[in-house]
């Protein structure tokens, strides 16, 4: 990125030099990039600003929006349900992201230090769940976990581990754990591939030198690989957090939108969705959106700066 910026600075000088040439078609660049930005203004920027406007109104979907100042924001600030939803969202994200990282690093290490047969096929299988519709996966797991005769109950009954069916999704901790499991299952392959891209970029000569000095794989992993992977780890971690803060599909399908049991599956995006589209409180929902936006912007800035500085220190 740093390089691109430099490159374009140089090319701007070239532009002014070449401006008068008859063959200069550089202004065509504007025509080429125009459709992208026009569509972004309509379908991207306008809704963002419109949401901002609505967040200062009491809009119920029927009457015209009435400007009420910062009332909505003050309300979110004191809304226990918002904080509850934020807490749930973060808990379920943590439950998914910890095993995700453990598996991603372990697998990347195995694939990078050893010659594994069928590496491509295994990688593809690990990655597959990431691509499949989250809605379908959630509905599938809903069937597996269903009471009284879902697959998991049948399996546990058959093996004699339990004597009566268990209603898993009515237990808050188990329900949150299930979401964490589904998130792990969906994304560990994706995280693995991102981590692996970083690992393969590390020069093998470093490993060789360490081996000559008598280091074993364990030491190599903790003393060489992990420190060198710090920038990419941070990047993967923060993008996962941004995704986690927006999680919606799995919880919405598992609970039919209610966030039951005891509201422990209600996420921030579910809360703002329900506020707007179930209770027609668009203004308040817009304010919740902006709180979420605020959190995400802060994390994104860290990502952005991290990437920027990462590029600088390398060159």
């Amino acid at each position: 990125m740093q390089q691109t910026v430099n490159f374009s600075k140089v090319s701007q000088k070239k532009v002014s030099r070449k401006r008068h040439s008859k063959l200069d078609k550089n202004y065509y660049g504007y025509f080429f990039i125009a459709p992208f930005f026009i569509v972004f203004l309509i379908f991207g920027l306008y809704p963002i600003l419109y949401t901002l406007y609505l967040s200062f109104t009491s809009y119920d979907g029927f009457a015209d929006p009435q400007i009420i100042g910062s009332v909505n924001y003050m309300r979110v600030f004191k809304d226990p349900q918002f904080y509850e939803a934020l807490k749930n969202t973060l808990i379920m994200w943590v439950m998914g992201v910890i095993p995700q990282f453990i598996f991603a690093f372990a697998l990347s290490a195995i694939f990078s230090y050893n010659r594994i047969k069928a590496k491509g096929a295994l990688r593809a299988l690990y990655y597959l769940p990431r691509l499949v519709t989250a809605v379908s996966i959630s509905a599938l797991f809903n069937q597996f976990l269903s009471y009284p005769s879902g697959l998991l109950n049948q399996f546990l009954l058959k093996t004699g581990l339990i004597h009566d069916s268990i209603n898993f999704l009515s237990n808050p901790i188990f329900a949150q754990g299930s979401v964490g499991f589904i998130h792990w299952w969906m994304y560990y392959g994706n995280t693995m591939i991102m981590v692996m891209a970083g690992m393969t970029a590390i020069s093998p000569s470093l490993y060789e030198a360490a081996r000559i000095d008598g280091a074993n794989s364990w030491n190599i992993f903790w003393k060489i690989t992990m420190p060198l992977l710090r920038p990419i780890t941070l990047y993967v971690f923060l993008t996962s957090m941004i995704g986690g803060l927006q999680s919606f599909d799995v919880q919405q399908i598992l609970t039919g939108g209610s966030g039951a049991p005891q509201g422990k599956l209600l996420t921030v995006v579910m809360y703002l969705y329900n506020t707007a589209f179930q209770y027609n409180n668009y203004g308040y929902s817009a304010a919740i959106s902006y709180y979420l936006f605020f959190f995400i912007v802060i994390i994104s800035l860290v990502v952005f700066i991290g990437r920027f500085r990462g590029g600088k220190s390398k060159s």
Binding site: F43, T51, Q246, A286, S289, L292, F304
Partner: peptide, 19 residues
């Protein structure tokens, strides 16, 4: 464009719907 890449889509759903 890089900044646009970072904007989360779900944040503007209320405005998107109304538009």
């Amino acid at each position: 464009l890089l900044v646009i890449m970072m904007i989360p889509g779900q944040v503007s759903i209320v405005g998107f719907y109304k538009m």
